[in-house]
């Protein structure tokens, strides 16, 4: 009898442990399936903005490098800016609904907005 109880208890503990260990994984799956909230929200107020300055895949991965290279050209070489951060605002109007979506997921706090106004 005692042996039977012991193995039962062991089984219950195992199940409980497995559930506890799987909670974060399940939570992630359920929450990502339930809401599409991590997707950046695109706004195109004008028909003339049919595409970005570079293709989407490039912008997704390298927009910071593009902005930095433009900054170097403008400040150090005195050239005219190809695109300004305020031009990005024309389509991607909200920082909260666009920039922050990805930055929050990867836990980045870029300091662009300390100086550059972006609502």
């Amino acid at each position: 009898m005692a042996v039977q109880l012991n193995s039962n208890l062991e089984f219950i503990v195992m199940i409980a442990l497995a559930v506890i260990l799987l909670i974060p994984l399940g939570y992630g799956v359920i929450s990502s399936a339930a809401s599409n909230d991590t997707q950046p929200f695109l706004e195109k107020p004008d028909e003339k903005y049919d595409k970005c300055v570079r293709d989407t895949e490039y912008m997704r991965l390298n927009h910071m490098d593009l902005l930095k290279s433009i900054r170097d050209e403008v400040i150090h070489e005195g050239k005219k800016a190809e695109v300004k951060l305020k031009d990005c605002r024309e389509c991607h109007m909200s920082r909260e609904r666009f920039c922050d979506k990805c930055h929050n997921v990867v836990n980045l706090q870029p300091n662009c907005f300390g100086c550059h106004y972006y609502p």
Partner: peptide
């Protein structure tokens, strides 16, 4: 007087006259 199309500065930055480079451009 906050102008949205010109960057402001952050705490800890030094600033001075730039001869209005953005206008000269």
């Amino acid at each position: 007087t906050l102008r949205e199309d010109y960057p402001s500065r952050v705490k800890g930055a030094v600033e001075k006259c730039t001869f209005c480079v953005e206008r000269l451009r």
